[in-house]
């Protein structure tokens, strides 16, 4: 629906990719680990390999959790916009079709958070 307005109402998005100095936004949440209150927002180069995301970026953000050390990326599964999604570790974010403002959810079977409370 259109905005009810006195004049033409058309403005650019405040967060289009061109405003991020070559980076793209990627959101990543870790299911069943609500100790991290919300998914994280990252601004990353599209040329970053997915392996680097998993080995460097995510450990820095999620590493405080005692269960992070038990995460096995071979057993982990992913959702992209809520749908099952299979990453290729050797490809870059751009090569596997991850777009600006895409959202990933990491699911780690067997890990259920602090005292099994999904925390």
């Amino acid at each position: 629906m259109a905005v009810q307005a006195l004049k033409d109402y058309n403005f650019p998005s405040a967060d289009s990719q061109d405003k991020f100095h070559g980076g793209q936004l990627l959101y990543v949440g870790w299911d069943d680990h609500l100790m991290f209150c919300a998914p994280f927002a990252f601004c990353l180069p599209p040329s970053m390999p997915f392996s680097e995301l998993c080995e460097k970026v995510l450990p820095n953000s999620f590493g405080y959790h005692p269960e992070w050390a038990k995460v096995d990326f071979k057993a982990a599964t992913w959702l992209k916009s809520g749908q099952p999604w299979q990453p290729d570790m050797s490809k870059t974010l751009a090569e596997q079709g991850l777009k600006h403002k895409d959202i990933l959810r990491l699911k780690t079977p067997g890990l259920k958070g602090l005292a099994g409370s999904s925390s």
């Binding site: 949440g29 609500l34 209150c37 994280f40 820095n60 405080y64 005692p66 925390s119």
Partner: peptide, 26 residues
């Protein structure tokens, strides 16, 4: 849902490892 999370944080803070998230939230 919440007690385990808060107790863990309190225990960690007492050990000098108070939790501050280092990444911006969505």
């Amino acid at each position: 849902y919440y007690r385990a999370r808060f107790t863990h944080w309190r225990d960690e803070a007492e050990k000098g490892n108070r939790f501050y998230s280092n990444t911006l939230p969505m």
